[in-house]
Every structure is written in structure tokens, then in C-alpha cells.
Write a protein that binds this DNA or RNA. Sequence first.
DNA 1: TGTTTTTGCTGATACGGTTCAGCATATTGG
DNA 2: CCAATATGCTGAACCGTATCAGCAAAAACA
Lengths: 353, 353
Amino acid sequence: MRRTTIADVAKHAGVGKVTVSYVLNGQSRTARISEETEKKVLRCAEELGYRPNALARMLVTQRSDALAVVFQYGAFFSALSSFTSEAMRGVCAACVESGFDLMLHTKAADDPIHEACALMDGRVDGVLMLRDRDDPAMAEVVAHKFPCVLFFTRSDDPHVPFVDSDNYAGGRMATSHLLELGHQKIGMVIGPAGSVAAGDRFNGYRNALESAGIELRPDYVVSGVGIDPTDFIKLITREDRPTALFVWSDDDAFICMQTAIELGLSIPEDLSIVGYDSSEACERSKPALTSVRQPVFDMAHAATRLLVSLVRGTPVERTRIVFPPDLDVRGSTAPFGDSFNSHRRGHLSHASH
Amino acid sequence: MRRTTIADVAKHAGVGKVTVSYVLNGQSRTARISEETEKKVLRCAEELGYRPNALARMLVTQRSDALAVVFQYGAFFSALSSFTSEAMRGVCAACVESGFDLMLHTKAADDPIHEACALMDGRVDGVLMLRDRDDPAMAEVVAHKFPCVLFFTRSDDPHVPFVDSDNYAGGRMATSHLLELGHQKIGMVIGPAGSVAAGDRFNGYRNALESAGIELRPDYVVSGVGIDPTDFIKLITREDRPTALFVWSDDDAFICMQTAIELGLSIPEDLSIVGYDSSEACERSKPALTSVRQPVFDMAHAATRLLVSLVRGTPVERTRIVFPPDLDVRGSTAPFGDSFNSHRRGHLSHASH
DNA sequence: TGTTTTTGCTGATACGGTTCAGCATATTGG
DNA sequence: CCAATATGCTGAACCGTATCAGCAAAAACA
């Protein structure tokens, strides 16, 4: 039993395929189709349960009304990440508003470059990319002049549109906060190796330390805890461990916090922790997590709207947008000092009841 | 500047389009293309940066190697929901394994039925649906015999495959736990109105109460807090408020917990709370949330694999799968009684350090 | 040498729509 | 009454690929 095509409807209604096409696309007026014929066609289409084949339409119109999202590091949601969820929320919201469908490229390819370019094959009109600055796949997409907006990353090429945050400022902000609290031994849990965003935050961290006249200690810098926490555990169990930590993401920071607590440390009495993203979960953790806020939803939303404009040819005022970060101070950071904070906190918690 | 097509490659290589098609699809052997010609074609394709148009291919092969996911209640990620993230993780993981792309239908349509059926237009080979049991859109997809697997819901039609959990058992389990702790006044925050899953959990809740000889109090049952918490606030501030609550989802339960704490209640001393899903965040909340566990990732994964098998025509042993729930008891539930628990808990927390 | 089989390649058609240009017929204007 | 315009509809071409059936030349066989 074949799907009913436009030809079936045409035959059934006793008209040409063309007429059916015009009617179903709401072109009856401009194509000068009589009201009588229009009604007849609509009735027949309904009766036969006709549903146009999107592929055929896309093939001839050269547009799909769909966008794609490409993340770094393989598949989507490969790790439970509040960042990813929030970014996807922003993208989806903008797609709903703009009338675009969304494609996730989960089909594996042999070649990583082709993998990222696989969507430039007619299925989508444009692509949102979260890749490293020097990513070859990104370069490929840009080289083909395929509509594209980078988000949570950027490009040196002035023609490439992006929506990014100021990771350098974020790193500086987090570190300055800890410095102001009197901390001297400040460690950092850096993000994915090779990530430019991670590099920027590290530079901010370093610069803040230098401005305070504190030398950077490379042994205080460990790689992400998501993959392997052994380095982190080594760091916080050593004799001259840092008294404060700036962590790549909230999700990583939660793991750090939990690990530290299991090792017998109290937060923030023994160790202050600053996360990144300031996701909702920061409010619910014990203690609540101080975190650098970046408006992930808004940024993803803005990037998607920008891409839609580029695809549609709508004029846009700016194609390179940088969001400033902010700091949400919560309970996971405290002034440097030993038992005093512990007492003060116990007192406050009693008073609030 | 037109995209290079297969005809361009053919002309450039001095062969017919057909030859190019065979070579690029790895059919050189079966189509008896000489090695020499094969090399020439491959080289030309490379030189011209040829990339086959997926739409044209899909149109003629009648398959897309893509699946779609359709959720209830409009768009994706409309609310920050750990359930949704976890489900998407499972779907994506299975898609990566199976070599399928994923489509999210975010393009709004006038008619809700058409909206869900919009993907049956050649763009995807099958669809995963999370809709209510009596959903008209679901009926439409089933009626068209379009490959489809329901997840986190089911159908009375024995031909419709699904992967669901036993919500009735989950509701019973949560309520029994509270009853065993000595609670008599047990309220429930039910889920989305009209959701069959919510109805099943409610039935489990009611049945557990009845089995314990306790009469169901309709005024103890309030609707979801995600939309409007006023009913919930009214419930827990009244004189004869419940001492325990069974809540639709972890996310809702967190809101309940926070709201209750802000109103001056202690958890679990003044109010025991049981959530649903047992997401990772349950471990991090203060106190940790007791929750009915359902393996959201595994279920989504299984549903996707099932759909892939149906699409590919691979034989499957079972097309209707029910996962049993389980209970993870954590700190948000305690035996009924007043101040005793508060002391005991304080004591324990000291001892553990 | 003549017939059959194999090798290597291609023309034509189909997939299911959209759109341009054009063709009758009906209507209007002078 | 004739020319000009408006109305209502359609034939043909096209989007870019896959695949069936077939064709010429070379090789194998008798």
C-alpha cells in the first residue's frame, strides 16, 4: 500500500497536480484558483489522508526549515550535564518561536570532519556549533560558507558569527572573589583538555593571581574530575593543599564537593569552592554552590535566533556577541581562617530556625 | 555558485552518473566497476569536494536513517527537567550505537494532531512517543502503521509496542514506605492533569492507603507544583496538614522541599517527602531525597533499540516491556513522631564526622 | 570460427513534489 | 464586433540521487 501522493489527489479531484500544489500551499489566490476548485481539492486531500512528502518539497525548494546542533566531543548528552540541558532548552525555545525543526547528528561517521559536515547535505538550513576554536570540522563548515553560528566558542575569522561568554573575565572574577576572602592557596580544576574556553578561564585565574602578587603553582592545577578524580583526590589530601578551588563546571564542582566531604573535609570551612554556570542545582546543594553565572539559556537562545536571521536573510545588527559573566556568591565559599567559620555558620543556622 | 552534484563529478571523470553512484556507495564490486575507474571517480569526487545530497537519496531509497522523538505537552525542554535530560541521554546513546540521526519536531503547527504526525513525511523512519494513552496524535500515528514505539506510556492496542514502567507499583511502593514509617496523613502531589502515568501512580497511592485501612482524603491531593504552588502552600500550612507527601517527580519534590523549608518546616522532622525518578540530584539535595527509582536512561535506551529493530526488520522477542520500579530511601523521609527524629539526626551527623 | 559468458559501463525511469511559462475561455473596453 | 485584459487551469522541466535492464566489447569455450 503506497503512500498517497499529490498525483492521487489530483486524479481523485479531476484536476492537475499543479492545482493541488497551489491550493495546499495557500497560493490559491495568487495562482487564480477558483473557490470551487479549492474546496474540491481540499476535500479530496482530506478524504485520502494526503500528507505531502517533505523530502520532495525540500529537494525542490532547497530549504528544510530545520537547524542542526553540533557539540564537541561526540554525541549529545554523553554526560549528564546541566549545561547541555540548559543550552538545549535555549535552542529549542528559539526553534519553537521561529518555526524550525531541530536535528541532532548522532549517526557516527568514520571521519570526524565529515561527521560535523554531514548535515550540510540539504537536511538542515544552518548549524549551531559548539566546538573548539581550532576545530577542523568547524573550519570545514565555515569554508563551505554554510550558514553557521558558533556558541560558547568563537572564531578569529571576523566573518564567522558567534555568541560567546567572556571566560577570561569569569576566571578572573571567581579567583578575585577567593582572593578577597583572604585565600592564598587557590587551586583550579580545569575543563576539557584543548578547550579554548577552559584556556581563557585559566588565563583569568592566572592573571588574578598575578595581580595579587601570588605566584601560580602548576601543581595546584588538575584536570577535569568528570573523567578521573584521582588527581583531584591527591591534590586535596596533600599536606599543603589549597584552601580554595575554582572548578570548571557546576557538575564537576558537585563531584568535588561530594568527594571532599567523603574525605572528611568540611565545605566551606576547610575548602572553599567556586563552580561555573550557576545552574539551578547550585541552590539545592549542601552547601549551596558559589558559582560564576553565565546565562546559558539566553546565550543558546540568542545564537539560535541569530542563525535563523542569517538563514532567512533578515538583517541583523551584530553577528558577534559576547555575554559578560557574573558571580553568584553562595554558601560554598567563606573567608580564609580555620574554625571560626564553622562556629559562625552553626550559630547562624540555629538562629534561622 | 551551485553545489556540486553527482553529474558534475561524472562529467569531470568522464563517466556516467551511474558509475559515480555505484562507486560512492561501495558497490564497485557488485556493479563490476574496474579498479581504475573507481580510483578516478574517487579522486574527482574528492577534488570537487562532492557531498551527496541526502534529500535526493532519502527520496529514492525511502529511508532516512533518522528517528524522531515526540514528547507530550508541546516543545522539548520546555521545563528544566532531569527526567527529560535523562530520557534524551538514553535515546541519543542508542542512536549513536545504531547509526541513526535524531529529529526533534519543534516547528509549531496549527493542529496538534498534525503536529505529531508531521514527521511521518519521509524525514524519519520511526518515532518514539511519550504521550498520554488516549492521545489522538498517537492514535493517528498508529493508524497509519508508521513505525512507532511508545515510552513512559502504553497502549491498550496489543499491536503497539511500548516500554513503560509500572507506575501503579511505584505509587504503592512510595505510599507503603510512608505507611510503614507510621504516617497516617499522607498527601500526594499528582502530576500533569490527564496523564495516565499520573493516574496509575495515584491508584497505587489510593490502594496502599485502602489496604492500610486509611480513607483517602481528596483534600490531601493537589495538582503539580511546577505550574502553580498556591494549592500546595495552602495544603501544608493548614491546621491538620499531612505529615508526609508523595510527589509526582523529583523536580517537583525539590520545589516542595524548598517551599516547605521557606515556610519554616523541617524536613523530614515536620514533613516526609518521597519523590519520583531517583535522579542524581536526589543525593545532593538537603536533605537527600527519598525517591521511587525508575531507570529512565535504560528505558529510553531500550525503547530506541526496539524501534531500531522494528525499522530494520530485525526480529525482536518482546515488543511490550514493563520495567519494575524500586525505592531508594534517603534522608527526606523519617518515622512519624515529633522532635525525636530531629535529635537523632543531629547525633548521627556528628558521629559520622 | 562461431557461440556463450563475463566484464565494464550507461540510458532511462522513478522518487514526489514546486514553479515557470503558456494556453484556452470569459470578460471588459472602445 | 474586435482587441485587450483577466480568469482558471495545466504541461513540462527540474531538484539530485538510486536502480533496473540492457548494450557493446572482451574473454572463454567448443
